[in-house]
């Protein structure tokens, strides 16, 4: 099933998809994009890797357990939700700290989006690896 053409093109494609996914994640607050779609893009790259090299190689390349990625993302979501509460605002109220020109505005919204990104990647990867093993 895995051809040499696929294997040769998979690596650069995965890298490109990873970069695009981060781009989509960062522009997500004011423009179309965000954590969910970014996470799906990266998962698409990982799925390509899985088809080309097999599920073991993908699991080794990712290093972290999928569920740990999900848990880490969930933790960032919770932090982004609770930080404004500690500062006396409502739950999930956006706190902006500073902006990096042309890249992103940094604040709880970005932390929340990165958390969603990780939850999506972790969950989708878990599904992919489980299906590939069967």
């Amino acid at each position: 099933m895995s051809s040499i053409i696929l294997r040769a093109t998979a690596r650069p494609l995965v890298a490109i998809l990873a970069i695009i996914s981060i781009f989509v994640l960062l522009r997500g607050h004011d423009a179309p994009g965000g954590g969910f779609i970014g996470g799906l893009l990266l998962t698409g790259g990982l799925a390509l890797h899985l088809v080309a090299f097999g599920s073991r190689a993908t699991a080794r390349a990712v290093r972290l357990e999928p569920l740990s990625i999900t848990a880490g993302g969930l933790l960032m979501v919770v932090i982004a939700a609770v930080v404004p509460l500690v500062q006396g605002d409502e739950l999930l109220q956006a706190q902006w700290w500073f902006a990096i020109p042309h890249v992103a505005k940094v604040g709880t919204v970005l932390i929340f989006d990165i958390g969603v990104y990780l939850v999506v990647v972790g969950t989708a990867l878990l599904i992919l690896l489980t299906l590939a093993e069967e």
Binding site: L67, A71, G72, L74, L75, V78, A81, L85
Partner: peptide, 22 residues
């Protein structure tokens, strides 16, 4: 704050529990 804490607290507990699940 009192209203959302009964929802947020179990979420925090679940998240931490998931991180140390082994």
């Amino acid at each position: 704050m009192a209203v959302v804490l009964p929802i947020v607290l179990p979420l925090i507990t679940a998240t931490i529990g998931l991180l140390v699940r082994r």
